[in-house]
Design a protein around this nucleic acid. Structure first.
Lengths: 202, 202
DNA sequence: GACAAACACGAACGTTCGTGCTTTTATTCT
DNA sequence: AGAATAAAAGCACGAACGTTCGTGTTTGTC
């Protein structure tokens, strides 16, 4: 790896950590440069604009997410084990991953949902990819007979997302230590409801 | 209402709308003053600091939330109707309330979850109040026999919060028009599971 | 109608913001 | 080793940031 790419990598490592606390939009060239003992212009050169930096941070975090959450989980067998792995690794990533402020995408989501631009576009793309992983994993489970064929993958995915978001909210903001175990309980209930041949309510 | 209080009210009306889009931390004295055709200093005088403005915006939005969501819903009869009213009014508040960017507290939650200060403190307080309303309403439903006594109000509340957050996320960021109907379906499932004498799974 | 209080303004402050230049220092390749 | 290239620094810019201050202009009270 060339010197430049190396520096760029270091910048993005630190920037994504900072962004998980102050938000992607809260990133600042000056603060970043100070922290890394670089000049503002020296740092700036690596990205061609602040927006370029933001997009790069999102990509950097997405790669980290793929490496620590997605790829390992996809090595689990289809059905319940894979779904549970996705969920548990997602929780762990938010709880004690490399990002001190928790999942950077959760923060970015509400930050950019009303602010058009390149950063928002990339974020939406990344979120769709992730949701697609979840939905596809669920569908593969259905094919394998692990989940009921009448279950709606998109409903499942959105519900799953909600469990995760509520966990983040209750533990990060409200400091509720029981949030994670509640999230787990909700996940089990969601799973159970999706199992095949569950007694249908009449 | 005195002149000052009137101006202050107008400022907060506009500020909370703006904050729902750019975030409470993204508020700016200068922009606010320009929009309202006030001088920066004239506006500033109403709050003694930027943090004062942020806290005031949160309070202002909370009062609006209480008036359009909480109080009307609490007039519904205990149990399912009241719970449903809370949920539906919550959804409506996020969808097409006075705040163009959706629920300001959803945005503020991820914004402040790592940033200590007066604004965060007030936000946490307001969120606890709201969660308390939800949990208490559920408990009253239990007392009235509408919900199962073995159901956990805190679990119910967190799950409910997740449904709401996921709906916000999927519709606001991802532009998914079906998000709200999925949220409604999830809510019904949550309600159903909490009804008394549901067949216990063996 | 006078007077005090409340309200708003304009100018200026010291910082920090993002973004350009030009120059110096490191690295890479022959 | 030295030429070619990449990377970082240095410096400067205009704009916007929150905040303060002094000065007018409304407003409400007697």
């Amino acid at each position: 790896m060339s010197k430049g790419a190396q520096t760029r990598h270091q910048i993005l490592d630190h920037a994504s950590q900072l962004a998980s606390q102050v938000g992607v939009g809260g990133l600042t060239i000056g603060v970043l440069a100070d922290d890394l003992h670089l000049s503002k212009s020296g740092l700036f050169r690596h990205f061609r604009s602040k927006e370029g930096l933001q997009v790069a941070v999102l990509d950097h975090a997405a790669e980290s997410f793929a490496a620590t959450v997605v790829r390992p989980a996809l090595r689990e067998p289809r059905g319940v084990p894979r779904m549970r792995a996705l969920f548990e690794r997602w929780l762990a990533w938010d709880r004690d991953g490399v990002l001190p402020g928790g999942c950077i995408f959760v923060a970015a989501a509400t930050e950019f949902d009303d602010q058009p631009g390149a950063a928002r576009d990339r974020l939406v793309e990344l979120q769709h990819q992730w949701i697609d992983v979840l939905a596809t994993s669920f569908l593969k489970g259905v094919e394998a007979g692990a989940f009921s064929p009448v279950a709606d993958p998109e409903q499942f995915t959105q519900d799953l997302y909600g469990i995760m978001l509520a966990c983040h909210h209750h533990s990060r903001l409200l400091g509720d230590a029981a949030a994670e175990s509640r999230a787990r309980r909700a996940f089990e209930a969601l799973l159970t409801a999706a199992l095949p041949s569950t007694p249908t309510r009449t």
